[in-house]
Design a protein around this nucleic acid. Structure first.
Lengths: 231, 231
DNA sequence: TCGCTGCCATACAGTGTTGTATGCAAACGG
DNA sequence: CCGTTTGCATACAACACTGTATGGCAGCGA
């Protein structure tokens, strides 16, 4: 029945390996939540029967464990790498994170949100998510310390920035990429309490103007920003 | 079998009404997510059989619709009432919201988070959540306008404050109430860009000092903190 | 070529949940 | 006091999903 060309998700020809099942499970998790990660549906999607699954895994719970480890191993490393690659400057480090969040390529907020939903009623997943959250908040707190904030202020601002990002994805807001870039200086100001310096403005690859000329006028005057806006 | 005293959730003696089932569904939703809102478990919890349920409702989906309307009708009104009761002052209005979020009595963040999880894979729930979110963000944007922020700045700060709150509950952080009160001035500063004025300090019932002595310098929007604290 | 192993198909059993049909008892209006 | 309605119990049918047992086939090494 299977000829290697009809099928579902395997990237390498005929037979499946564990990674194929995990990838299929990831797709199902993101698309429909943990409740839709079912053995029979995954098998149908991969073009095999459940017999294959029970050869690769002892049961469904083992697949879920592997999926959780996959998320923990893949979806937070890009953040730390991007920050490390940005050098020592606090503004550059923060801007690197923001770019990662907006671009959504190396880091998948949908994967993140799906695991977070899962974690709300699965203790094992909750423990993994808590570990990851603590790491990310610590990363952000270091950046705010670099930006000149002391102890508790750095910690609270790190939380605000991180919770804000989690909430943004939790609301599943759909905005054009250009719109998000246009709002960048406003978010930068609200989250850091500082103006976005010129040397990080190019980092986000903003297509519109710098937004700084607008923001000087709008911050206290009540004028609406002029110039072209994305919808 | 049922004698009105053994049972589950009904508040009024013998027979059940629709509201009893909805309240039971709400409890199950908060405790275990929408996947645990099952007719047979609710019936067992209420001390009746499923036959009762199918008399009050045509099916499970009708219960879920009623539950969604219940959330939409009950869990956002306290916010608007608290803000309205706080008078015209922007600081007082914002502080009233914060108190509501911290106290968690009139407003139930657990109910909120459970519905939000549900909404991630149920279009009808997603539509309701989006309506509520828009209302709340508009409410916050009005407060930030009262605090002196113009157009886009007020909107972005409203989003940051609201997303932050959603993210906080999404992470299911457990902190002592006193700790949250102690951090209040820091959050107030980070979220509003302004110092917490004396006349709203008592509103939250904070027991310790305001944290202002620990603050090294003002962090008003646009003003760069002096000194660099690389950690 | 022979036997072994990896990978999968098939068939069967069991559980959890929904929905439906019908019966039964208590409450209620005449 | 009786018939009707209300609220629930019981029994049955159907589906979705998990897990197990077993058989078969292709490929590979000796």
């Amino acid at each position: 029945m299977r000829d290697g060309s009809e099928g579902g998700g395997t990237a390498r020809g005929q037979r499946l390996v564990r990674a194929d099942w995990i990838e299929a499970a990831r797709g199902a998790l993101v698309a429909g939540g943990i409740a839709s990660v079912k053995v029979d549906r995954l098998a149908a999607g991969l073009g095999v029967t459940r017999g294959s699954f029970y050869w690769h895994f002892v049961g469904r719970s083992e697949l879920l464990e592997a999926l959780l480890r996959h998320w923990e191993a893949t979806n937070t490393a890009p953040m730390e790498q991007a920050v490390a690659a940005a050098g020592p400057d606090g503004h550059a480090r923060f801007a690197a994170l923001v770019r990662l969040w907006i671009d959504e390529v190396a880091f998948s907020p949908a994967y993140d949100a799906a695991v977070r939903d899962w974690a709300r009623h699965a203790p094992a997943a909750a423990a993994a998510v808590r570990r990851i959250d603590d790491r990310r908040i610590a990363l952000l707190a270091g950046i705010f310390a670099d930006l000149g904030y002391a102890g508790t202020d750095a910690f609270v601002r790190a939380r605000v920035a991180y919770f804000h990002q989690v909430g943004y994805y939790a609301l599943a807001i759909r905005e054009p990429h250009a719109r998000r870039l246009d709002l960048m200086p406003y978010y930068y100001r609200a989250l850091t309490g500082l103006e976005m310096p010129p040397h990080v403005r190019g980092i986000t690859g903003s297509v519109s103007d710098d937004g700084r000329s607008r923001l000087r006028k709008t911050v206290r005057t009540g004028e609406r920003p002029k110039g072209r806006r994305a919808k």
